[in-house]
Structures are given as C-alpha cells and as structure tokens.
Simulated scan of single mutants.
Amino acid sequence: MRGSLQKNTADLADAYLAWWNLAGVDCAIGETPTNWLRPAPAPVQASPAATETLPPLRPQSFDAFLAWLAEDAAQPERRWPGTPILPTGPAQAPLMVVTDMPDPADMSAGRLLADKAGQLFDAMLRAIGLARADIHLASLFFSRPPGGMVEASDLTMAAARMRTHVMLAAPQRLLLLGDRTIRTLMPQDEHRLPIFNHDGGTMPAFATFHPRLLLGQPAAKSECWRILQSLFEEMPQ
C-alpha cells in the first residue's frame, strides 16, 4: 500500500509540473511582469569624474624636481602646519642621507637634524670623513604632521617620490636613518640587502639608527659605528 501511495504522489507531481510547462511557465516567476523580448541594456560607462585620478608625473631633472617639491600644491605636506624643510646639498654627492621627517626642534630651527640629534649626526659624518656641505640631505616628508603620525597612503606616496628623488640626485651611496625610513623605503626583508631600488636602477644602501634614538639608547652606538665603518669602506677614496 505504501509503495502504491508514493507512486501515485510522484505521478501527481509530474503531471502538475507538466501542466505548467505546457502553459509556458518553465522557470521561477515573480509578481512583477518581465519583458523577455526587450534588448539587453548597454553597459554603463564610468563618468570621467568617477574614474581614478592618475598621480601627476614627477619632473625628470634634479633642479625641476626640487622646484616641484617646493611649489606643487598637491604635496601632502601642504595639509600640515609649519614651514617646509626642503632637501639640501648637491646632486651626485658621495653620500645621500634620508631621514623620516623633521623633528619638532628641526621645525623650529628650519633645518633637518638640528639640536642635539644634529650634533650627533655631524659627529657621525666626521667619523667617515664628511661634512654636511658634502652630502645631499633629505627626508621622506619635508614637514611634520600633528603628532608625527602619517597615513599609509602618504607613506606609499612618499616612497614613490623618494625613488624618483634618489634617481635624480644620483649619489654614490645612500644612508637611511631610522626605523620608519627603513621600513618605508626597504620593506619586508629588503633591508637585509645593501641595495636600494630606485626609478633608474639600484644603488648601494646602508641603514642605521636615527640620532634621536642613539641619544636615548647609547648602547646602540656600537652597532651604528659598525655600519658607518662598512659605509666608509665602501665609499670611493
């Protein structure tokens, strides 16, 4: 009896579906009528305002690049208070030094690496036979945001800008100061290799502690001195 009942139920379901299929209902339906004969809609074209804006092209000469840093209103530093501290020193210098951003004392003095950190930095340069006038000195950011905090998008922009900067400055060696500078320009494990990738190729690079950290952690000076010795040995005599 049970098998006969199941068979009858299945036959009734098949007949019910066949009736609707003959009626032209062979798919799920809704309450709103659909015009199946209408032409397919044309693809929506993104308006020019909705498309992603490409970053402006950076100048491709050293002097034009420095002028662009000083004058371009789209630089992120224009959002921050204070007078910008722009790069100093010649192109094709024996050494280019890059720090992260001006310290509060730097903003007051109007130059990078001022105050006690600057005195220690000058001593570091003397240890390898150089002075400030010999080097090209720059920072990832040439002004200081409130609290010294920057957004990830600004760090990405600053890294790309610095790759162009290093290419145009064309120093013989590169010295990166501080953890934030190192992580931004040589991310992941690249800082273990003494090579920096810039827009025009590669160049030898060295990384060490920022003088501000050395002032608070004198024990780190021995490691810093070891790196400076390696830098001095690599420099053309």
Rank of each mutant, 00 (worst) to 15 (best):
R2K: 15
R2W: 15
L5P: 08
L5R: 15
K7E: 14
N8E: 14
N8A: 15
A15F: 14
A18T: 06
W19D: 12
N21C: 11
A23L: 15
A28M: 13
T32M: 04
N35E: 11
N35K: 14
W36N: 09
W36Q: 08
P41L: 05
S47Y: 09
A49V: 11
A50V: 07
T53G: 06
L57S: 12
P59V: 01
S61K: 04
S61D: 11
D63C: 05
F65P: 00
L66V: 03
L66N: 08
A67K: 11
W68M: 05
L69V: 10
A74M: 10
E77R: 10
T83Y: 07
T83Q: 14
I85F: 02
L86M: 06
G89A: 04
A93Y: 07
V97T: 02
M101Y: 06
P104A: 08
A105K: 00
A114G: 05
F121M: 02
A131P: 06
D134K: 01
I135T: 08
I135H: 04
A138I: 01
A138N: 00
S139V: 01
L140G: 01
R144T: 00
V150E: 10
E151P: 08
S153V: 12
L155N: 06
M157S: 09
A158S: 07
A158F: 02
A159G: 10
R161G: 07
M162A: 05
Q172I: 04
L176E: 01
T184G: 03
M186H: 02
M186I: 00
P187L: 04
P187W: 04
Q188N: 13
L193P: 03
P194H: 10
T202M: 13
P204W: 04
A205N: 05
R212Q: 13
A220E: 11
E223N: 12
W225M: 08
I227S: 02
L228N: 00
E233T: 13
M235S: 09
